[in-house]
Design a protein around this nucleic acid. Structure first.
Lengths: 347, 347
DNA sequence: GCCAAAACTGTGAACGCTCCCAGTCGTACA
DNA sequence: TGTACGACTGGGAGCGTTCACAGTTTTGGC
């Protein structure tokens, strides 16, 4: 009788991937020595070191991360969590900058960044299980609207977490890195006042984000300080271009005589410019426009935007620093990054 | 002597997270029973089931994924790999659609999608280690330029991989899902010919991607079939708007009499429209423009683009299907998704 | 009321690592 | 020449699960 032919799969799925024991055997040393080589090679003779390295190459050994993590309780990876409808973020050039700077900062510590999405409730549940199951050593949170249920869950599990922007409702418990939104807004509005504007409106961000709240607060502070408080000049936007355009239209209707507007993001400011243009107002001649973010958009608009710069590379670096220190057992901290007025042509 | 105060950290980092044994003890059952509850609850009495569930709630138990993965050899997660400079992809609305459809399809199997970035060589190395270390059960690859060193590495490890678009150089070894680029291009160019165009140029994608190569091949096939071959009418683009604009300018210079152009992506086509407009050509009056992708951009241009639709939701779903079947031990396969001509106003 | 089968339960043995301790050398110093 | 110490090595124990198997109890058919 002919032998049964070997099933096809056998070739694709090697019976067993080499373990540390296979390497040890091939190198003629013990498991312990191989492990030492794997972890920095302290207290290993040159001969052993070389034998192990050769054996690893020969066997094609790759460490089994699960086995390692099981004992070290570390996974050498952290999650970068988007719990926002994705499109909005991907559209934002600043998001790319932040993502990139976090990746770089983590790379220095040989930690992999995992970008995870959670748009639906279902997603969020699975993600919660994933994160608290020990898959990652910590989490970086962006776009933290208040009421994000992931925050308390991770906090309760003791998973190190750092938010980008004040996590409304958890400022005391979760670490975060935020730009000095209030001061930036104050700088901008003060600048508008100093350049002679008297009827200054604002388009805010969503008021369930700290950026939305704080920038509005800064606007109010600057105006109250100068006794030029002007209620009714506030319109709410949602950080989108279309939202900014619509808000600007409302503002023009409610206060046709306004001569300046502080917009809480560059993208919304771009929309506001469109609305002003359609309404026949010149910028900055009739109406001065101030943005926020100093994103790539700011230089692409006509005219280029006077705006408030927040350094995303720095924010990313600080987030990573805070996260790593928490992973090392430090208690959570908050960092506020200063903001800076950038004068261009729109104001 | 006063006792040394307990260090602060103790509160934040609970001494030990509860294990399956703690749950078993609290529920008055054995480890095995708890495990059975964890894995579907087969062969577990109602009383035991309930006792275990109560114990899990009481102890705040969460399964340790590393321990589980160590024995099951599965991590219930797959990587979605971007080895491209990120910005380009994030700008592409189709990318979002693909990402979303993959996430959804995986969610049905309770598998988490991990988006990983690898722009630099260094990144790629770390990512290689991460992936082959057993962290993920498989990988989805997008934007696969030929010469991506990650592909052979993952293949050699036997990690299930599915590429989006033919992975040039590894078509035989790696599974992939691709739109029928060649046929789509053929349809478009045939349509241009049939509507009476005679001097038909093309703007290609990068020729180290299968989309670039195949769409050009389709263009050539359609023209050769009709004996209307027109060498010199080919310009190369890079899938960006600016690249499309520049390529169109070159085309106009080399062949001022062209009356149609097939552009290998909608984004480049949008750039081409700008160039044509600047050159004073009317579309479609003087020059017909055909795009590819049917992305969101296609309806935003002036005039809206006649283009070739490839269904990204379907591509994502198929990628996941192929990946899961490979994880189950099937051998890699290729799937070609049909493309469809969408006639709008630009041609 | 008996017996086989089904339903349920507990336990030892992995899974592949790291950590720690005990041990074996060789070397420098008294 | 003895001894202490450092450099290096080997192997047991344990990380928290799942799995297979051997039990024990319950059920159902005759």
């Amino acid at each position: 009788m002919a032998p049964v032919p070997e099933p096809r799969e056998t070739r694709r799925r090697p019976a067993r991937r080499p373990t540390i024991n296979d390497v040890a055997a091939a190198a003629g040393v013990s498991r312990g020595t191989v492990s030492r080589v794997l972890n920095g090679g302290h207290d290993v003779s040159d001969a052993a070191q070389e034998a192990v390295e050769r054996a690893m190459r020969k066997t094609g050994y790759v460490v089994n991360q699960h086995a390692r993590s099981l004992v070290t309780q570390r996974s050498q990876s952290v999650a970068f969590i988007l719990s926002e409808p994705q499109e909005r973020l991907f559209e934002d050039p600043n998001f790319n900058v932040l993502l990139h700077s976090c990746t770089q900062a983590l790379a220095k510590h040989d930690i992999t960044l995992l970008l995870t999405l959670a748009s639906s409730l279902e997603d969020r549940k699975r993600l919660g299980r994933y994160l608290t199951g020990g898959h990652v050593d910590g989490a970086l949170l962006v776009s933290t609207h208040s009421g994000n249920p992931l925050i308390p869950e991770l906090l309760a599990r003791g998973l190190p977490v750092v938010a980008c922007g004040k996590p409304l409702g958890y400022e005391r418990q979760a670490a975060y890195v935020a730009a000095d939104d209030r001061d930036g807004a104050r700088q901008m509005v003060t600048y508008l006042i100093e350049s002679g504007r008297r009827r200054i409106g604002t388009i805010t961000g969503p008021l369930d984000t700290s950026g939305g709240v704080e920038r509005l607060a800064g606007y109010r502070e600057a105006l109250a300080l100068d006794g030029a408080d002007s209620p009714g000049l506030v319109a709410h936007g949602d950080y989108t271009r279309a939202g900014g355009e619509a808000a600007m239209r409302r503002l023009l209707e409610a206060a046709p005589d306004l001569d300046a507007v502080f917009v809480a993001s560059d993208l919304m400011a771009a929309g506001a410019l469109t609305a002003l243009h359609r309404a026949g107002r010149r910028v900055p001649g009739d109406v001065a426009v101030g943005g926020f973010d100093d994103s790539r958009i700011a230089t692409d608009t006509q005219p280029p935007l006077t705006t408030v710069r927040q350094s995303y590379p720095r924010i990313g670096a600080e987030m990573v620093r805070l996260l790593l220190s928490q992973i090392d057992g430090e208690s959570p901290a908050a960092v506020i990054i200063p903001t800076e007025l950038v004068v261009r042509e729109s104001a």
